[in-house]
Simulated scan of single mutants.
Amino acid sequence: MTIFELTKSFPVEECYSLTDQIRRSSRSVAANLSEAWRKRRYPAAFISKLNDAESEAAETQTWIEIALRCGYLKKDTALELDYRCEEVLSQLVAMASHPEKWTINSNSSASRS
């Protein structure tokens, strides 16, 4: 939501390029994470969606850098956004590296019955 609010001040000529791209990639992180959570019964699908979310977060970082270089974001704002992206990326990598902490093990529920 922070990116959405910040991009409201981007130039009108960026509406269908930079503004659209950074909004799409930032929103896609959350959407892919939501999909991963719903696929947690299938570790490979779970990891795949986490990887998609990671890619979108990295893309968002690139758009932030471009917005900074174009003068659309202040340096301190861009650094804060980049830091927040790094936090998200770190969490996504941790989840993908240890999916057993997050996925549903259908075998354990079957063995309890």
Rank of each mutant, 00 (worst) to 15 (best):
L50E: 04
N51R: 09
T62F: 02
L18D: 08
L18W: 03
A78T: 01
R41T: 09
V12C: 07
E87Q: 09
E80R: 05
Y42F: 04
Q61A: 15
E100K: 13
F4K: 09
Q21N: 14
K101E: 13
W63M: 10
T60Q: 05
A67H: 01
S48M: 13
D52I: 00
A67Y: 01
A57K: 03
I64W: 01
S34L: 10
R112F: 08
A57G: 15
L33Y: 05
V12R: 01
S26Y: 01
N105V: 05
S9D: 04
T2K: 07
T19C: 10
D52A: 15
F46Q: 06
R27S: 15
P99W: 11
E14L: 00
V12Q: 04
A67G: 03
D52T: 04
L92H: 12
A58T: 11
A110D: 09
T77N: 03
A96V: 07
S34F: 06
E86I: 01
L33H: 03
D20G: 15
V88R: 07
A36P: 02
L50Q: 01
Y83W: 03
R24P: 09
E35K: 04
D76E: 15
Q91T: 12
K49T: 07
G71P: 02
S9C: 02
S34W: 01
D52S: 15
S34P: 02
K74H: 11
A45T: 06
M95D: 11
L89G: 14
T60H: 02
L33G: 06
S48P: 00
V29M: 08
E100D: 14
I66D: 10
G71C: 11
P11V: 14
A96R: 08
S25C: 08
A45S: 13
R69F: 08
L18G: 11
Y16S: 15
I47P: 05
V93S: 15
A30H: 02
I104Y: 00
A53R: 00
L18V: 08
K101I: 12
W102L: 15
E54A: 15
G71L: 12
C70S: 13
R84W: 01
E87C: 12
K75H: 13
D76Q: 10
E65T: 04
S106D: 03
E86R: 10
L81A: 07
Y42L: 07
A44V: 07
L89A: 12
R40H: 08
D20P: 09
F10S: 07
D20N: 12
F4Q: 09
W37D: 00
S111T: 05
R84V: 13
S26F: 01
S26L: 06
E13G: 02
L33V: 03
E87S: 08
S106Q: 08
L68V: 13
T19S: 06
C85E: 00
A44Q: 05
M1N: 07
A53E: 03
S48G: 04
E13L: 00
N32L: 05
V93Y: 06
R84F: 01
R24L: 10
R41S: 13
L89D: 11
F46N: 07
S48H: 10
R69S: 12
A45C: 04
C15G: 11
D76Y: 03
E65M: 06
A57L: 06
E13V: 00
Q21Y: 04
S109F: 04
F46V: 09
L18S: 08
E86D: 12
Y72I: 02
N105H: 10
L6G: 02
E54K: 15
S90P: 11
